[in-house]
């Protein structure tokens, strides 16, 4: 069970601003999904290794050879705000 209070914390961890109304709306829906996920507890997974990757691949590398980068113009072309070649973000504090 997640409470509206938990949701505030999860919202912050997710960097999603949630209004009071959002929290009201989401809490029961998220809980119904979590209830459904409770199904997982019934599976016996003792001694079973997790599958992080579906294929048993390893050791895929690039060689240390440079390739062309984007131009500065291309790199900045999608940035809503920029200044002197930098991407401009809000103040930190």
């Amino acid at each position: 069970m997640i409470t509206k209070k938990d949701l505030e914390h999860i919202g912050w961890l997710s960097r999603l601003e949630l209004s009071e109304e959002d929290r009201e709306k989401y809490t029961p829906k998220l809980n119904s999904v979590l209830d459904y996920f409770g199904e997982l507890d019934k599976a016996d997974t003792g001694g079973v290794e997790p599958s992080y990757h579906v294929m048993p691949m390893s050791n895929v590398f690039r060689e240390d050879v440079p390739i062309a980068s984007l131009s500065q113009e291309e790199a900045l072309s999608n940035a809503p705000k920029n200044q002197d070649g930098f991407i401009k973000a809000p103040r930190m504090m």
Binding site: P80, A89, P90, M93
Partner: peptide, 18 residues
């Protein structure tokens, strides 16, 4: 919203992000 896509009104970075 920094490198591409939607950007809303700026306040501090973490709040703007959210």
């Amino acid at each position: 919203g920094m490198r591409y896509g939607l950007r809303t009104e700026d306040s501090d970075w973490h709040t703007t992000f959210s």
